[in-house]
Design a binder for these strands. Structure first.
Length: 301
DNA sequence: AGCCAGGCCCAAC
DNA sequence: GTTGGGCATGGC
C-alpha cells in the first residue's frame, strides 16, 4: 500500500477489490451519498470526506495523513486481502461466484460501534432510503456540527451521552416511529458505564458480547449480527434479514422461515467469512431484484 | 391503494 | 421455548 498526501487529499495505490458503489451503497452504512462523478461523500468518526476510486487509486478528499492512519485505513479495511476471501467463497457454488463477480469491489467497513448499534435499531422493519433519512435527521438534530464541506454543513453522529439525556418525545422530529423508544432505552443502558462495555465487546468472548447486545432494547438476533459484523470485525456473523432469508430458501433450499436451520447452515457452509458472503449475496440479490418484480430470485441473472 | 421494508417486543401458549 | 399479532412510517 503506497500512500501519498497532497493538499488535504490522500491517494492510495495498489489496492484491488475496491469499488465505491459496492462499498457505500450495499446497505452496511447509511451516511454516504453518491456524487455525480461516482464518488461518495459522507461522515465517519466525526470526519467528513469524499472518497473515489480512479485508475486503481483510492482518493480520499478532505483527509490528512493523520486522519488516514487513525481512521480511514481501518474504516475502509484496506489491510485485508479480499482477493483471497473472494476466491475461497467463489469456490462454494456458482451463485456465490456470481454474487462476487457482481459486487467485486465490496468491503466490510469498520464502523463505530455506537453508531452501528443505533443505526441498525433504526433499520428494523424499514427500508434503506427511509433509514438514511431517519439517521440524517438524527444527526442534524442531535449531532455536533463538524463544519462545512462541499457546500453543506455536516454533522457527527450523536454522542452516547446526548441521546442518553433526552426523552423519546424529543426524537419526534426524526420520524423514527416506535424505534425512538428503543433508542432512548438503549442509550440510557449503554451510558450506565459511559459506553465502556459496548466499546469492549470485541475483546470479550463472542457469546458474552452477543448476550449484552441482545439485552438492549430493540436489538434482536438480526440487528446484533449486523453490529458485530459491521463494527467489530466478527466476519462469521450472519445477519438473517428478509432478503437473506429468501436467498437461504430459494437458492440453498432451506425450509422457509426456519431461521435456526439457516444460521446453522451458514455457519457450516460459509464458515469464518459467512458475514462477508452474506454481504455479497445481499448486494447481489437486491440489485438484480430492482430489475424484476416476480418476487423470486432470478437464478439466471 | 396496498404491500412491503436489513425485526423486535411481549403476551399467550 | 416457541409462536404470532402488533407495531410507526413512508417507499414504491
Amino acid at each position: 500500500m503506497k500512500i501519498t498526501e497532497d493538499n488535504n487529499r490522500i491517494i492510495i495505490n495498489d489496492i484491488n477489490d475496491f469499488h465505491p458503489d459496492h462499498i457505500f451503497d450495499n446497505g452496511q452504512c447509511f451516511r454516504w451519498e453518491r456524487e455525480i462523478d461516482g464518488s461518495y461523500t459522507g461522515v465517519a468518526f466525526g470526519k467528513a470526506a469524499n472518497i473515489n476510486y480512479i485508475d486503481d487509486n483510492i482518493i480520499i478528499n478532505n483527509a490528512s495523513l493523520n486522519d488516514f492512519n487513525e481512521y480511514w485505513k481501518d474504516y475502509l479495511d484496506l489491510e485485508r486481502d479480499y482477493g483471497i476471501i473472494k476466491r475461497k467463497l467463489s469456490e462454494k457454488d456458482s451463485h456465490m461466484g456470481k454474487a462476487i463477480s457482481f459486487g467485486y469491489g465490496m468491503r466490510i467497513l469498520g464502523q463505530d460501534k455506537w453508531e452501528t448499534l443505533i443505526s441498525f435499531i433504526i433499520s428494523q422493519n424499514s427500508n434503506i432510503p427511509r433509514i438514511k433519512k431517519c439517521i440524517k435527521a438524527l444527526c442534524a438534530n442531535f449531532g455536533d456540527p463538524i463544519g462545512e464541506y462541499k457546500g453543506k454543513v455536516h454533522y457527527a453522529f450523536p454522542e452516547l451521552e446526548k441521546l442518553a439525556q433526552i426523552d423519546t418525545s424529543d426524537l419526534d422530529t426524526c420520524r423514527l416511529g416506535y424505534r425512538a423508544d428503543y433508542i432512548i432505552k438503549t442509550a440510557k443502558k449503554v451510558a450506565l458505564d459511559g459506553g465502556e462495555t459496548l466499546n469492549r465487546l470485541d475483546k470479550i468472548p463472542p457469546q458474552d458480547a452477543l448476550e449484552y447486545l441482545l439485552s438492549l432494547s430493540g436489538v434482536g438476533p438480526k440487528v446484533a449480527n449486523c453490529i458485530t459484523l459491521f463494527s467489530m470485525k466478527k466476519y462469521d456473523s450472519f445477519p438473517l434479514d428478509v432478503w437473506i432469508k429468501r436467498v437461504m430458501h430459494q437458492i440453498y433450499g432451506i425450509e422457509e422461515g426456519n431461521v435456526k436451520m439457516m444460521q446453522n447452515y451458514a455457519a457450516e457452509y460459509f464458515g469464518e467469512y459467512g458475514g462477508i458472503a452474506q454481504q455479497y449475496l445481499f448486494y447481489y440479490i437486491r440489485e438484480i431484484s430492482k430489475y424484476s418484480n416476480t418476487g423470486r430470485i432470478n437464478h439466471t441473472c
